[in-house]
C-alpha cells in the first residue's frame, strides 16, 4: 500500500541547472582549457610578431643579392644562403621523391600485404622518428668522410634521409585513397600493373601525393641540424667564377640564422631575423600551396 506512494525522500528532481558541485567544476575546467588553448597561440603570435617587426624592418632587395657580412661590416645579405638552401633541397628532392614514390607504389599497389611491405612500412615509420641530427651524422659518415670535404651533396643526402619517409608514407596513403573499383575497371580491361598505376592510380592520387611531397620539402627547407656539419657554411656564392662550386662548403638559410644568432653584432642579428622571416615565409607558402593542391577531386 505504501509503495504506491513515492517515498518521501524522492522529491521531484529539479531540472534547473544548479551552479554548484559538478556543474561548477565543469565550468572551471572548461575555462581552463579555453585559457590553455589561447595561451598556446601566444608563442605563435609572438614568433610571428618578432619576425614581422624585427625581420621585416631589415628586409630589402639587397639581402637577397648580397653576401653575408663579416664581423663589423655593415649591410650585406644572405643571397648565397638562399641559393644554397634551394640547391640542397633540390638535391634532396631529386633523391627522395623518385625513390619514395616508387617505394610507395610498391606498398600501395604491388604488394600491400607482403612481408617486404610490412618491413618497409616499419622502416619508414622508424625513420620519421630519427632525430634530424642523426641524418646529418649519417651523411657525414657516408659523404663527408668519403669525399673528404663538406659539400652541398652531403647536405642534400642528409635532407633526403629526412624527406624519404615522409614521401613514402604520405604517397602510400594517397594511392590507397584511389577507389578500388576504378583500379578494377582498368585491370579488367587487361591493363598491366604499370598501366593501371600510370593511367589511374597516379593521376587520381596526384593531388594528395603532391601534398606529401610539399610537406617533405617544407620540412627539409627549415632543417638546420643535418646541415651543420655536412654542408657547413660558406661566405661565397655557389657559382664561383663561372662554375658551380659543388664540392665545397655551402651556405644555407638555416645555418646562417644559427651562426648569426650567436654573434654580438646588431647587423648580423638583424639579418638573422630577416633570414628567419624569409625562411618561415618559404615554409608557410609551401604548406599553403600543398593544401590547395591537396583537395582530392573524387
Amino acid at each position: 500500500m505504501s509503495d504506491t506512494q513515492p517515498p518521501p525522500s524522492r522529491a521531484t528532481p529539479s531540472l534547473q541547472r544548479k551552479f554548484e558541485g559538478r556543474a561548477l567544476r565543469s565550468m572551471v575546467l572548461s575555462g581552463l582549457v579555453w585559457f590553455l588553448a589561447i595561451l598556446t597561440s601566444v608563442p605563435l603570435l609572438s614568433v610571428l610578431y618578432m619576425l614581422i617587426t624585427q625581420g621585416g624592418a631589415r628586409l630589402n632587395m639587397e639581402v637577397f643579392t648580397e653576401l653575408p657580412p663579416a664581423g663589423f661590416e655593415m649591410d650585406g645579405g644572405f643571397g648565397n644562403a638562399l641559393v644554397g638552401t634551394f640547391f640542397m633541397v633540390g638535391i634532396a628532392a631529386l633523391i627522395a621523391i623518385p625513390v619514395g614514390i616508387m617505394a610507395a607504389i610498391f606498398l600501395a599497389e604491388l604488394g600491400p600485404s607482403s612481408k617486404l611491405a610490412t618491413a618497409a612500412r616499419f622502416a619508414a615509420k622508424t625513420l620519421t622518428g630519427v632525430p634530424s641530427i642523426l641524418a646529418g651524422v649519417f651523411a657525414y659518415a657516408l659523404v663527408v668522410i668519403t669525399t673528404g670535404t663538406y659539400s652541398a651533396p652531403a647536405g642534400g643526402v642528409a635532407l633526403a634521409v629526412l624527406m624519404l619517409p615522409i614521401v613514402v608514407l604520405t604517397a602510400e596513403e594517397a594511392m590507397r585513397m584511389v577507389p578500388k573499383v576504378m583500379k578494377d575497371a582498368a585491370y579488367g580491361m587487361g591493363c598491366t600493373h604499370t598501366q593501371v598505376i600510370w593511367q589511374i592510380v597516379l593521376p587520381t592520387g596526384m593531388p594528395a601525393i603532391l601534398t606529401g611531397v610539399m610537406l617533405a620539402i617544407a620540412r627539409a627547407a627549415g632543417e638546420t641540424a643535418p646541415l651543420l656539419f655536412t654542408a657547413l657554411f660558406s661566405n661565397y656564392w655557389l657559382l664561383q667564377e663561372g662554375h658551380l662550386a659543388v664540392m665545397s662548403p655551402t651556405a644555407s638559410m638555416a645555418v646562417l640564422i644559427y651562426n648569426f644568432s650567436g654573434m654580438p653584432f646588431d647587423n648580423q642579428l638583424e639579418l638573422a631575423w630577416a633570414a628567419s622571416l624569409v625562411l618561415v615565409m618559404i615554409v608557410l607558402i609551401v604548406n599553403i600551396v600543398s593544401r590547395i593542391f591537396g583537395k582530392p577531386k573524387f
Binding site: A218, T224, N287
Partner: peptide, 17 residues
C-alpha cells in the same frame, strides 16, 4: 603552424624573447 616553424627560428626567438 606551430609545427611548421623551423627549429632554428624557435631558437632565435628563444634567445631574444
Amino acid at each position: 603552424l606551430l609545427a611548421a616553424i623551423p627549429s632554428v627560428v624557435y631558437g632565435l626567438w628563444g634567445i631574444f624573447v
